[in-house]
Nucleic acid binder design. Structure first.
Lengths: 155, 155
DNA sequence: AAATAATCCCAGTGCAATAGTAGGAAAAAG
DNA sequence: CTTTTTCCTACTATTGCACTGGGATTATTT
């Protein structure tokens, strides 16, 4: 059960595309440079995002990538699901494999399912525009950002 | 950001000890047999649980392990924290390492912190007795188990 | 038409962590 | 003093992650 660099980098790239949404296509070379990431690695991630229809690729000189929809249409969950090999979430009953023999009576599997669904619910309701707003607030006057932080510090 | 077999097995072992709380000490050999886990691997996990004070070990013949406190005193979060190498949670600013240079301005790091704190809060409030109750309800008459499942299916 | 600039595709590689194995020393009980 | 347990340390094999590299394809520019 994990979130790796693939998903994390994907979010950063999508945020970058959202920030520069009006500029049209942006090449991997530029994104990787700006975000200090390996261009070839980002290429692979873009491939997944393209195949899933989250971004639109334009080949050839002056080509690049752009969001397929406006930033408000993307949830963090969506981005993670597409880029991550999320097979090992809910490890007791993997998607393509045979479930653990004690799956039915073992209660611990429900804990991991609960964890997964909780994360999903959280990230489902977090869009790129939410994050852009948070970013503005983080740098400038805090408002929404503090809302999230207060939830974070509630414990 | 991951939960591995160490943490998951540890929870199963702790649940087993909680179920047989009244029996006194139970040997690794028995637990491993009952839970279909590698005895030598469980030994290592028990070592962590012992050092953290969650269980009490009795060496020698007729020895074994027992919970240090009653099951209601253990949260899932506690068990995971002790057994898991939780360094790679919040990957942007690791505990012992240097934080990512863009940590201050990059908003995506806040997403992962939010994920982490959400999981922590969830698992902090989930005790072994909660799970035992869920297990009874799962097999017999459902009550609390359905409460959790409804939350799970809410989305 | 040719050169250039980009995505696409597939293969390989180094490293680190996971998931165990293995062997024996120390301690307690019978 | 033999047996049964935990304790401790080291070793290992596999897996998956995090890239790197080389070209083929597509489109623009000159």
């Amino acid at each position: 059960m994990r979130i790796s660099t693939k998903g994390r980098y994907a979010l950063r790239v999508m945020l970058y595309l959202a920030e520069h949404y009006t500029l049209g296509h942006i090449a991997v070379k530029v994104i990787a440079e700006e975000e200090s990431l390996s261009p070839k690695y980002i290429e692979q991630i873009m491939s997944k995002l393209t195949k899933a229809g989250l971004v639109i690729a334009v080949r050839g000189a002056n080509g690049g990538y752009r969001l397929a929809n406006s930033p408000s249409n993307y949830s963090v969950a969506q981005i993670i699901k597409v880029t991550e090999n999320n097979e090992d979430f809910s490890p007791c009953a993997p998607a393509g494999g045979t479930p653990c023999p004690r799956y039915k009576k073992c209660i611990s599997s429900d804990v991991w399912q609960l964890v997964q669904s909780t994360i999903e619910e959280l990230l489902d309701n977090l869009t790129l525009t939410d994050l852009l707003r948070m970013q503005q607030d983080k740098l400038g006057t805090p408002s929404l950002y503090l809302t999230y932080l207060s939830h974070l510090n509630k414990k």
